[in-house]
């Protein structure tokens, strides 16, 4: 929901980033206020997943220019774990499998680490078990997933639900969902989207990174941004996604081309 009086949560200015000497982000600008849902759309290779990972602090990406302020702090100077504790959450496009680490153990460790950093009480295994089961109901997840190794042997849909479960446990200020809709059938998509919707409120914000309009039928964005060649080239309301669905990405490119041709004339 857009409220001009909300405080600014994320301020990205002219962000440039590269991975092994290839520049992927070439000047991203984005402002996210509390309560807002932003969708970032774009073709494969446009830089949208890179943008998500850079915000989360993936060590494989090097920021070469620009600034990111999150909750009035310089985000780029913080380690990934500190970003998480400060309220950034990245739902991975491809959640990592960790054989040998029980999902329940992982979830509790993550939860307690964040609780501790916020000066709140940790939960012992029994208390946590009750707590996490309640959250799992939100995502219609089978409790068997607690005893299995983190994401190991989970289907694509189960992995994505496990990501949103972590979001529910950690209660981030800013959740970045990277292609959370990919690999989900329509039922799973509905469940995941409804879970996300229940977690949104006026004090947090969401960035949805997606290729398709489909997810946006279930999680309705306040803004839709189109990313192309490492930049956000167009920003509009939720209808932009629908137009994109009808006309395709070429339409945006043509539109942009026309504009740049106009301006150069």
């Amino acid at each position: 929901m857009i409220d001009q009086n909300s405080k600014t949560l994320l301020e990205v200015r002219d962000l440039h980033a590269k991975v092994s000497d290839v520049e992927i982000l070439k000047g991203v600008n984005l402002t996210v206020k509390c309560g807002e849902i932003h969708a970032i759309m774009g073709l494969n290779g446009s830089g949208k997943s890179t943008f998500a990972k850079v915000l989360a602090g993936h060590p494989g990406y090097q920021v070469t220019a620009g600034s990111v302020s999150f909750d009035n702090q310089d985000l780029l100077s913080l380690e990934p774990e500190v970003r998480s504790r400060n309220g950034i959450f990245l739902a991975f496009q491809y959640p990592i499998e960790i054989p040998g680490v029980a999902n329940s153990q992982f979830l509790r460790l993550a939860y307690n680490t964040n609780q501790l950093s916020r000066g709140k009480e940790e939960l012992d295994p029994l208390e946590f078990d009750d707590f996490v089961r309640e959250k799992m109901q939100l995502l219609e997840m089978n409790v068997d997933f607690l005893d299995r190794s983190v994401n190991e042997g989970f289907s694509g849909g189960e992995k994505k639900r496990n990501e949103i479960l972590q979001m529910a446990l950690l209660e981030p200020k800013l959740a970045i969902l990277d292609e959370t809709d990919s690999g989900l059938d329509i039922d799973a998509l509905r469940i995941v989207a409804s879970g996300v919707n229940k977690l949104t409120n006026k004090d947090n914000a969401i960035i949805l990174v997606t290729h398709y309009q489909r997810l946006l039928d279930y999680i309705v964005p306040d803004y839709v941004h189109i990313m192309e060649s490492g930049r956000i080239i167009k920003t509009s309301g939720k209808d932009l996604a629908k137009e994109l669905e009808v006309h395709g990405y070429d339409w945006i490119k043509a539109d942009q081309l026309a504009k740049s041709t106009e301006s150069s004339i």
Partner: peptide
């Protein structure tokens, strides 16, 4: 795997030990 754990607030040393 280390980054995944860190992105959930778990420190690098704890992540390494756990893995």
């Amino acid at each position: 795997e280390i980054f995944y754990l860190r992105s959930r607030g778990i420190s690098e040393s704890v992540a390494r030990n756990l893995l």
